[in-house]
Simulated assay, not measured.
Amino acid sequence: MTFETWLAFTAASAVLLVIPGPTILLVVSYALGQGLRTAAPMAVGVALGDLTSMTLSMLGLGALLAASATVFTVVKWAGAAYLVWLGVKLWRAGGHLEAAPRTGAAPALRMVAHAWLVTALNPKSITFFVAFLPQFLDPAANFATQMLVFEATFVLLAFANALGYAAVAGRARNLVRREGVLRTLNRAGGTLLIGAGIAAVTVRTGH
């Protein structure tokens, strides 16, 4: 894996994590109702959930790569198409974030478990990783090393992102719900997804 590949993965992951999804809705709803005390437990739960779903995805991709280079290539093509489709959906998503405040006090461990369940058991998360990760994997490089680097990078970014959303929701609630901010995030993420899908196809066609 080259430094440029890692940098591209890090930049893409950072932007994609900012896009509000089911996990962020959960983080924001807890923070809106209970303030900053929810930030650390929710961030830990999100990080563990992403670690779980990403590990399952990477192991599946590793098995595909070991079994058949052709099948792995087909998965990369399908993944590129899926990323473009997701990008188009994000562009059309608008700027609404429906997150009702959770006012009932919850223990930290319960919040961690809730965030982990929502993140790890969301089928869309595993599907997304299967589509997203092959665009950065080098079949000629050591798979275990790539798996370790990508997972560590993504999990740290996911933790920081959830912590940031919880802090903003707890301190500046109107900002989180501002339509223009959310629309900008969705369009930035949509553009990145479309670009990643097209770039993946273009690079492969060039070879």
Rank of each mutant, 00 (worst) to 15 (best):
T153E: 11
T153K: 01
A188L: 15
G206A: 15
V176D: 04
L193P: 07
L97M: 06
L175G: 10
G79P: 13
T184P: 13
G95A: 08
L97F: 01
A152L: 12
P107Y: 05
L117T: 02
I198R: 06
E98C: 03
A39I: 07
G95Y: 07
L25F: 14
A188T: 14
T103I: 10
A172R: 15
T2R: 12
L148C: 08
T119G: 04
V46G: 02
T23P: 05
L182V: 13
L16T: 06
T153M: 08
V75I: 10
V75A: 06
G189R: 02
A105E: 14
V71Y: 08
A40H: 09
A166P: 12
A106K: 09
R102S: 00
I198H: 09
A66W: 11
T70S: 15
G180L: 15
L61D: 02
L17E: 01
A66P: 10
V44T: 15
A47W: 10
A152M: 13
R204G: 13
V176M: 08
R177Q: 15
T73H: 05
T184M: 13
E151Y: 05
H207D: 14
T38H: 02
L83T: 04
F154A: 04
L61T: 00
A131W: 04
A188M: 12
F129T: 00
A131S: 08
A12G: 03
A31D: 00
L109Q: 14
S29D: 03
W6G: 10
R204T: 15
F143M: 08
A93N: 13
Q135T: 10
T119S: 08
L97E: 07
L26R: 00
L32F: 06
L163A: 13
R110F: 10
A100R: 08
P101E: 05
Y82Q: 02
A196I: 12
G45P: 05
A141I: 14
V155M: 00
F136P: 00
I198G: 07
E98W: 00
G197C: 06
T205S: 11
A81R: 06
T23D: 13
V176F: 04
L121P: 07
Q146S: 08
L185Y: 07
L65N: 01
A81L: 12
G62C: 10
D138Q: 11
